[in-house]
Design a protein around this nucleic acid. Structure first.
Lengths: 184, 184
DNA sequence: CGTGGAGTTGAATACGATCAACACCGGTGG
DNA sequence: CCACCGGTGTTGATCGTATTCAACTCCACG
C-alpha cells in the first residue's frame, strides 16, 4: 500500500526492459511464510496483498498492492532469510518481478536507482509509522474513515473482511461501523 | 528502539572522528514537531525518546534510545520537511550528532557507510512492522511481557507511564497488568 | 438448483479507558 | 529539619468499544 511508484515515463520504460512480466491467478501465492523472498512485484494489473498468520491462527493484512504499487518482503530478499509473511493474489494479477539480479542491472542502467529505491523505502517506513500511530490514538471508526479517504479506489473492490483485517478489527465490527456511518 | 548499532571498534572510531559530541539535560528537547530535523543522535550515555501528540492531546511514544541506539526523524532530515514528532531526553544524555553533512563525510571515509545505514534502516522497518503486528494480534498484557523480554534493560529505568504510552495503553491499565503478573 | 462464502444482525462478554480518590516518595523552600 | 507540593503509581467503580458466538440472508458459482 505504501510503496507507490512515482516515476516518469522514461523510468517506467527502463523497468519494462529490466523486469520480468509475470501472472498469478486469484487466490494463488507468490510468497509463503518461511520461504526466502526471491523477488518483489510491481503490479501492472490486479491486486496483491501481504499478510501474517498469528499464533491464534488469525490473518493480519500488512499491505495491499493494486496497480502501480509494489510489494515485497525487503528484509527476506536482502538477507536471504525466511519470510515472516505471505503474499498472494486477491484478483488475477499481472506484475513485473524484480530480483536482486534485476536490481543490479537497473543500477547499471541508472545509477540513481538506488537512491530512488531508498526514497521509496523511506515512504513505506513513514506510512507504516503513521499506521502504527493511528492504532495508538484512533478508534476503529476513525481508522476506517481515514482508510476510505486514503485508499478510496480500494474500498470498493476489496472484500470487507480484508479491509477489517487491515484495520485490525473483526468483520462484524466493520459491518456495524459502516451501518452507523450510513445512518449519519 | 529499533536502531541499534552493531558496528565493530574500527567503525565506531570513525564515528567519533566524524560526529559531533553533544549533551542534553533531562526534560529538554532536541527536536520539536514542525521543525526540520537537522541531525540524528547516537546515544553514548543516557536515554532519549521520540513521541507524537495526537489530536486529543495524548502522547504516544514511538521509540526509546538508550546507550548505543540511535534516533532521528529520517524523513524530515532527508527531505528537509517539518518533523511529525518530538525528541527529548528522559535522562541527562550524551550523544553524537550526525547531520547530512557528517553523513557525506562518513561516506568519503568509508564507501560502505551507505549500505550500513540502509541495513540499519531495514532493521528499523522490520521492528516497526513487528510492533504493528503485535498491536493487531496481541493483548496489552502480551505486549508488556514481550516488551520486558526484549528491552529488559529499559523496563527498570523508564517511568511506567512512558512504557504504557509505548505499549499503547493507559498507565492505570499497565499498573493492573503488572499486579496481575505478580500474582501469577 | 444448491452449496458455501460474505455480509449482517443480535446478545452476551471481555478488555481497556475514564474518572476519581489516595498512598508514596523526592525535592524545595520556609 | 520539617512542611508542603507535585508527580508517579495504585486501586476502585463505571462506562464504552470491540470481540465472540450464533443465527440468518444474500449472492456467486458450480
Amino acid at each position: 500500500m505504501k510503496e507507490k511508484f512515482q516515476f516518469d515515463d522514461e523510468q517506467l520504460e527502463q523497468f519494462r526492459d529490466v523486469f520480468a512480466p509475470q501472472f498469478v491467478e486469484k487466490g494463488n501465492s507468490i510468497l509463503l511464510q518461511g520461504d526466502i523472498c526471491k523477488y518483489g512485484a510491481f503490479v501492472t494489473q490486479g491486486c496483491l496483498r501481504s499478510y501474517v498468520i498469528d499464533s491464534k491462527g488469525r490473518e493480519h493484512i500488512i499491505q495491499f498492492a493494486p496497480e502501480n504499487w509494489w510489494i515485497a518482503e525487503q528484509l527476506s530478499m536482502a538477507r536471504q532469510q525466511p519470510a515472516m509473511y505471505n503474499i498472494d493474489a486477491i484478483e488475477d494479477t499481472h506484475y513485473l518481478a524484480f530480483t536482486n539480479e534485476y536490481y543490479t542491472r537497473l543500477n547499471a542502467l541508472n545509477p540513481q536507482a538506488k537512491d530512488m529505491f531508498n526514497s521509496l523505502f523511506m515512504n513505506s517506513f513513514h506510512a507504516m509509522q503513521k499506521r502504527l500511530i493511528s492504532h495508538l490514538s484512533a478508534t476503529g471508526e476513525e481508522r476506517y474513515v481515514e482508510f476510505n479517504k486514503t485508499y478510496s479506489m480500494l474500498a470498493t473492490r476489496i472484500p470487507q473482511k480484508m479491509i477489517a483485517s487491515y484495520l485490525g478489527i473483526t468483520p462484524e465490527t466493520l459491518s456495524r461501523i459502516r451501518k452507523e456511518l450510513v445512518r449519519k
